[in-house]
């Protein structure tokens, strides 16, 4: 137990790691504040919007419930920039109801027209379930895990570690778990902090229980979940991708002698998949790489499923299984070859 503590302590004693973490959190705070100052005027007139919405009470028809209808409405809206406010809200409202109904007959809020001020949720979704978050989280991981490894060699501690009783016996296991604990902690803090920040700043606590498909900016989600569940799912996906990424990085760190190469390899692994084409088979495959998989919009949108032996499988499920399997495989190889290149044995 004590050695775990000592390994984890290394990150908290490294200024570079702490600096990068604080910088990322600061950027996130600025992003939230900037979004709020830009959109705050749109958040205030809920009462007025609901009056608009009430005008359409009873006029909705379930026959309109179809994915294609929703897409048509959205396209229509984006092309008509001179829309009146009423048109806008009607479309938003209708789209929301259709989305909710598309998944299942939800019932609660379907027949009573109500405008949900989902601007905060929209912003949060665009931030937390996008490439931005997976990028920042994974960059943070590079610097969080780095001290657990590079410090040993840079400071000449590796020989002491290899010749110590617990060092040789436990070090591989301890470093692995210390890295995972640190990464889990980092992802949780980042995600929870961002979530609380958005909910607090945009005052959208009440929105957390509405169906995710009634949020205007998002594409259709095939799962019957509410906003909170959607973000929890996003957190789980991010956690899985982060652990997978951590495994790859540990593998790199254990073999590369220079910190700068470790950082370079880590950044390359994050950025490269982002620039790969998303269409076709390659696009589907790259969705499973950590930096792309970390986006929770894998559970919504067009590329939600892949065909496996004639069955449509949600990409998020498939990706989670692939990444967890890959993580375990890398760990096994890593444990077996940890000493190679380090000790003349």
């Amino acid at each position: 137990m004590k050695l775990y503590k000592e390994e984890i302590k290394k990150t908290f004693k490294t200024r570079l790691s702490l600096g990068v973490i604080l910088l990322i959190i600061l950027i996130q705070v600025c992003a939230v504040v900037a979004s709020y100052s830009k959109l705050r005027d749109n958040c205030k007139d809920v009462k007025k919007y609901n009056e608009y919405a009430n005008a359409y009470n009873g006029t909705l028809d379930e026959s309109m419930v179809d994915v294609n209808d929703i897409r048509l409405m959205e396209n229509d809206f984006y092309h008509r920039k001179d829309d009146t406010v009423e048109d806008y809200f009607y479309q938003q409202y209708l789209a929301s109801i259709c989305r909710a109904k598309q998944v299942e007959k939800i019932g609660d809020n379907v027949n009573i027209p109500k405008y949900y001020n989902a601007i905060g949720i929209n912003c949060m979704a665009q931030n937390l379930t996008s490439t931005v978050t997976s990028f920042f989280v994974l960059v943070g991981i590079i610097f969080i895990v780095l001290p657990v490894y590079s410090k040993d060699r840079e400071n000449g501690m590796d020989y002491i570690i290899y010749t110590s009783y617990l060092g040789r016996k436990e070090i591989c296991k301890v470093k692995l778990w210390a890295a995972y604990v640190l990464v889990g902690l980092w992802v949780t803090i980042y995600y929870l902090f961002s979530f609380m920040l958005y909910v607090g700043v945009f005052d959208c606590y009440d929105m957390l229980t509405i169906p995710i498909n009634s949020i205007g900016c998002l594409l259709l989600c095939p799962l019957r979940i509410n906003v909170l569940e959607y973000f929890i799912l996003g957190y789980v996906l991010l956690l899985i991708s982060s652990f997978a990424y951590t495994s790859v990085m540990l593998f790199v760190y254990a073999r590369v002698n220079y910190t700068v190469f470790c950082i370079g390899a880590g950044v390359l692994l994050i950025i490269l998949p982002m620039f790969l084409p998303k269409n076709g088979i390659l696009g589907r495959v790259t969705c499973i790489l950590p930096s792309v998989f970390g986006k929770a919009d894998l559970i919504i949108g067009n590329a939600v499923s892949i065909n496996i032996f004639g069955h449509e499988v949600l990409l998020a499920y498939f990706g989670a299984v692939v990444l967890l399997t890959a993580t375990m495989m890398i760990n096994l190889v890593y444990k077996k070859t940890f000493w190679i290149g380090r000790v003349d044995l």
Binding site: K10, R15, D152, N155, G156, M157, Y159, I160, T163
Partner: peptide, 11 residues
């Protein structure tokens, strides 16, 4: 064991 290059964490 005391290696030739003594190992320590600077911080």
């Amino acid at each position: 064991y005391l290696p030739q290059k003594v190992g320590y964490y600077k911080n």
